[in-house]
């Protein structure tokens, strides 16, 4: 589904991701862990197409297409979803209306009929129940004044509505108390199936107690320095990141 080959990328001319290769197949959950500044967020932003980040080398292929050639909205319509570490507040944009617009953009792309607010409301109610979100958030402005936990739930809600092929969840667990974490993880687990894939980007191991990854990769100084199964996450939790040094080429 996703094939990253020797990707180099950065921000304002500074290279932060220094040669990452990674293959993600349908039905897989990958966790990318690493200390602050290791390039985790840069990787997620370059995959989603943030305009401030640039690819400096390598290739990224998604469902057979050159991902780096696509604009952020085209990537979304192809099935990529980025769950933001810091979801953006957009005052004045109604949460439900925004979700319907995003949903209908996807429907239009697939040549399906767009939904009016009433029909969409049924879908929205169902998905809000799934992620344990109070219906009152439908009528609020997008993320405006939401608590940290509600913002993260709202990201998972968007994911539930848009049903992406590949979801990249960037530090979705950070800043959550244990109850919110459980709700978010529960939502993610309900959305995983044999046809989609998830990349969990996280600093801590605790999310992985709730969402079981098939693979764990450790990122340090812009490179994947170790890959393994979920036991790697436990080692990291016990020993920290210091024992890992970049693998010499």
């Amino acid at each position: 589904m996703l094939e990253i080959k020797d990707l180099h990328a950065g921000f304002e001319g500074t290279e932060i991701v220094k040669g990452i290769s990674l293959t993600v197949n349908k039905g897989e959950i990958h966790a990318i862990m690493g200390p602050n500044g290791s390039g985790k967020s840069t990787l997620s932003k370059i995959l989603a197409g943030h305009p401030s980040y640039e690819a400096m080398g390598g290739t990224v292929t998604f469902m057979g297409k050159d991902l780096l050639e696509l604009s952020p909205d085209q990537r979304a319509l192809e099935g990529i979803f980025l769950g933001f570490q810091y979801p953006v507040e957009v005052p004045g944009v109604n949460n439900a209306e925004f979700l319907r617009m995003a949903y209908n953009a996807k429907m239009a792309r697939q040549g399906k009929e767009e939904l009016d607010p009433l029909d969409f409301d049924d879908i929205l109610d169902e998905k809000m129940k799934l992620v344990g979100m109070d219906p009152k958030y439908k009528d609020r402005s997008l993320n405006e004044g939401f608590s940290g936990g509600e913002k993260k739930k709202n990201e998972i809600l968007q994911m539930a509505v848009l049903q992406p092929k590949l979801a990249i969840l960037d530090e979705t667990d950070s800043g959550l108390d244990i109850d919110a974490l459980r709700v978010v993880a529960n939502g993610v687990n309900k959305l995983v199936n044999q046809d989609n894939a998830i990349i969990l980007i996280t600093h801590y191991q605790r999310l992985l107690e709730y969402v079981k990854p098939h693979y764990v990769h450790v990122l340090s100084k812009g490179k994947i320095v170790k890959s393994g199964d979920k036991s790697l996450a436990l080692d990291l939790e016990a020993q920290g990141y210091d024992w890992l040094t970049p693998i010499p080429k």
Partner: peptide
């Protein structure tokens, strides 16, 4: 970018943000 990343085109996103203003 946030709106784009959810599949809204640049034009739709601009119009939505301007309306919200």
């Amino acid at each position: 970018f946030y709106l784009n990343s959810r599949g809204l085109s640049q034009g739709m996103a601009k119009s939505l943000l301007t309306r919200s203003f």
